[in-house]
Amino acid sequence: MKVEAGHSTTSPVSIHDLTVAYQRKPVLWDVDLDIPEGKLIAIVGPNGAGKSTLIKAVLDLVPKASGKVMIYGRPFAKQRKLVAYVPQRESVDWDFPIDALGVVLMGRYNKIGWCKPVRKKDIKAAMESLDRVGMADFARRQISQLSGGQQQRVFLARALTQDATIYFMDEPFASVDATTERAIVKVLGDLRSLGKTVVVVHHDLQTVRDYFDHVILLNMRVVAHGPVDEVFTDENLKKTYGGRLTLLSEAADRLARH
């Protein structure tokens, strides 16, 4: 296998010197990262820090101003089959005329191929994925009739049915109910035990320690990254969130005292 210099072949995602700009306004500066294999990794940072943009740049959804991203040592375009993506729930129109099963089946379209219809085994695989997120009973429900958390689980099931090696999830925990949160956490654990790498854009600082192994602290640049125990410190968080963190930690203190 041809490998470009400076990139790790063992790292599932190797980001080198990445800069992303939206119309003259840079969103990400000089990101250098080797994401470890088989871990649950959280991308944490304030609003507008470029968390989603980082994922989108890796997946070629936004143009890179400079830099390179390698998936196991090769460009993403050649490694698509290894990657599953869970976009933000708000990114689609949930009034679309399709049921939950139909959405999950989209994760199998690659395996089905051009112009061919969905087969029985695809439906079986999709149903298994729905079952893994506790949504098998809702397979034939029109997607607008699902709650926000249920919609999120449908998205997760669609990624699971791709049977990938690396999973990118954009804010899967954003405004979901407790059942959904538990279901997602369980799926994350399952994926880790299968040796998959999962990169999650995460907004809830309280749960980072409980849910993730590694953390990437991001605010337009990578402030720190590494195992949660070493990197997820007050000092690094202050560097990431600046003044805003004091407000957060006060709120957290008050919660803890109750």
């Binding site: 959804l61 976009p87 679309f96 989209m106 379209y109 089905i112 051009w114 219809p117 969905v118 669609r158």
Partner: peptide
């Protein structure tokens, strides 16, 4: 049918799939 459905529902997901 399925390609256009994917395009109309979730273009980004389709693009990531290639």
């Amino acid at each position: 049918h399925k390609e256009w459905t994917l395009l109309c529902f979730d273009e980004k997901f389709g693009s990531v799939q290639g």
